[in-house]
Amino acid sequence: MPGTARLRITRPLPTLDAWVNAFASAEIPVLAETAAEINSLRELEDDVDAHQLTGLVTSDPLMSLKVLAFAGELRRGRLTNDTETVTAALVLMGISPFFRNFSDQPTLEERLADNEEALLGLSRVLQRAERASRFALSFAAHRADPDAAVITGAALLHDFAEMLLWVHAPDLALEIARRQEADSTLRSAVAQREVLGIELHELEQALMRRWHLPALLMRITDDKHARDNKVRCVYLAVRLARHLAHGWDNAALPDDLNDIAELLNLNPAHTLKLLHEFD
């Protein structure tokens, strides 16, 4: 599970393994609102259930990541199936152990208090993740997919390595953002490799393995399996949320619309209407 060390990286690390080791040993802060709500609910512990905690945890991508990683550690050596959702992870660990392990969380706002530009960049990624999770849930529900909860969680966590980069290496994250702002044709993976020496997708998959996250979650989060309809739900939801960050008149939206219409087996006009409703 994630470590407890405070980390601030200012220069690219030499290898993917070095990035994985650094991020895996680092403390992961969460939203101040999440930390405050956990502490508040702890006083009402006997009246709190897993469903109530699920709503709180899944409103914060990095809190979701911490809970799933903690559950992954608990599962090691046990004869138990993957805890593929936050709810399953909470049931596995129990309410009292949750509060014992997750009260008094470090916060993103405190960590980046001296870097307003980085906090803004991170906030945009968090907002994009929340939007993507809503789209993914809608796509999965429309398709009556039995793994809708896993698909929703995968969309929420799809870009968690980018979130962690803003936390642990804000200067490098800002450099990537500046390069892409200066060149609208520069692909994210290319910018990441230029600045970091790795792609964040590689780091993310390696961290998921290190933290023993569920195999299904890892697969659904991996765009390389995009022919799978579960993966396409996530991939298209994330892509749409990324493009909509620039408004509904983004030039890439017609392609998104056609691909989503194919996924949902609808015509483009009906799909556009649904997307506005989902949003």
Rank of each mutant, 00 (worst) to 15 (best):
D279C: 07
F278E: 01
F98W: 01
A71F: 00
T80N: 14
E110T: 09
H212K: 14
E110W: 08
Q205E: 10
R111H: 12
E37A: 06
H51V: 15
A36P: 04
P97R: 13
N101M: 11
A32S: 11
P146E: 14
L263H: 02
T87M: 12
G55T: 08
R8L: 14
L120K: 15
S123Q: 10
A206N: 09
L156K: 05
A24R: 04
A113T: 08
N258V: 15
L137I: 08
V20L: 06
H51S: 13
L119M: 11
E204R: 15
S25I: 13
D259W: 03
L207K: 00
A18K: 07
V86R: 00
I220S: 07
D46F: 07
T80G: 15
T221F: 06
N258E: 13
L253E: 05
I9G: 02
A24C: 08
L236A: 01
S59V: 08
L65A: 04
R6S: 12
R76N: 15
A191C: 08
R131V: 10
L41Q: 06
S96Y: 14
K224A: 13
N21S: 15
N250G: 13
A237E: 07
D49H: 12
R242Y: 14
M1C: 10
E73W: 11
A189V: 10
E116I: 10
T83N: 14
L240N: 00
A32K: 07
A241F: 05
T34H: 02
R242F: 12
L119A: 12
I38H: 02
L217T: 04
L253K: 02
E33C: 05
L196A: 03
S184E: 13
E110C: 05
L272E: 03
E277H: 12
H158T: 10
Q180N: 10
L240Y: 04
M218K: 11
T271K: 00
L92H: 04
T34G: 05
V67W: 01
H225Q: 14
E43F: 11
I95N: 07
R111V: 06
G77M: 06
G197S: 05
A129T: 07
V238D: 03
P14D: 06
V30I: 05
D255Y: 05
H225M: 11
L126V: 14
L236C: 03
A69V: 03
S123T: 12
T10K: 12
F139W: 01
R242E: 13
D223S: 15
D183Y: 09
R209P: 11
F70N: 00
T85C: 06
P29D: 02
L108N: 04
I151C: 05
D183M: 08
M93E: 03
N115Y: 05
T107K: 00
I151R: 01
L13E: 03
M208R: 04
